[in-house]
């Protein structure tokens, strides 16, 4: 039995520094994905609650596709497919450059579209929870559509959508593990390499699970604080 502490030490013999880097990559990927997912999700939700049927249709197609495909498959389609597609297009346009989509960017996009398709549903139900009177009130005091949206609707929307979005954030943290399959050195890939090299599979995969749990715990606590903050203004 190898000494667990030695395996986790920092330095050339131990895996501590590799694992720490893996945690950083996982967190970085999740954090970079979040704004993409939120932005796309918000606009897809706007489209889905629009009065224009073609916009609703477009939004619904988007959600249907990206909620129906396995995340792993979406990732493969982006990682291999989009790169082949873009390079074929560039070649067609006579450009000599090639565009490389590395596993981080592919992961960011794939997880971003998956996140946004779920987030759009959360936003949509939050939109529906805001009474029409709020818009009318905004217009009545002379605010434009954009200002009503920004000053009246959005602050309430965020508060209502926050619990759902917190949940999606936790799902996103876990989904980043899939990107290890296309070679991103995240927590799971680093622990996989460590377990193959040291043959201590149970130990290292156990560590991986604990690291994900720790991330979930920390972000769970942070999200609860944010939720409490947004609820300051509401009296119960």
């Amino acid at each position: 039995m190898t000494d667990a502490l030695a395996l986790l030490s920092f330095g050339p013999e131990g895996w501590g520094d590799e694992l720490a880097r893996g945690v950083l990559v996982t967190v970085a990927l999740a954090l970079c994905t979040l704004p993409i997912g939120l932005t796309i999700g918000f606009f897809v939700a706007l489209a889905k609650q629009s009065e224009e049927p073609s916009l609703r249709l477009a939004g619904n197609i988007y959600t249907t596709i990206f909620r129906g495909l396995p995340e792993l498959l979406t990732l493969f389609l982006v990682y291999f497919g989009v790169q082949i597609g873009i390079n074929a297009l560039l070649k067609l346009l006579g450009s000599g450059t090639t565009v490389e989509i590395n596993s981080f960017v592919a992961g960011m996009f794939a997880l971003g579209v998956v996140f946004s398709s779920y987030a759009s549903e959360t936003f949509l139900s939050a939109f529906r929870a805001i009474p029409k009177g709020q818009y009318e009130g905004g217009y009545a005091v002379g605010l434009s559509y954009g200002m009503t949206m920004r000053l009246v609707v959005l602050p309430q929307l965020i508060r209502i959508a926050l619990p759902g979005l917190s949940n999606l954030w936790l799902v996103l943290l876990k989904d980043t593990a899939l990107v290890s399959v296309v070679g991103l050195s995240d927590i799971l890939r680093q622990t996989s390499i460590a377990s193959r090299v040291t043959k201590e599979a149970f130990f290292f995969y156990g560590i991986a699970c604990l690291l994900y749990l720790a991330l979930a715990l920390v972000s769970g606590a942070a999200l609860r604080r944010i939720e409490l903050r947004t609820e300051r203004g509401t009296s119960r």
Binding site: K174, A177, L178, L188, F202, A208, C209, Y212, L213, L217
Partner: peptide, 10 residues
Amino acid sequence: GTPLLAQVFL
């Protein structure tokens, strides 16, 4: 709280 993939590996 942990990824399914990690559970499968474990």
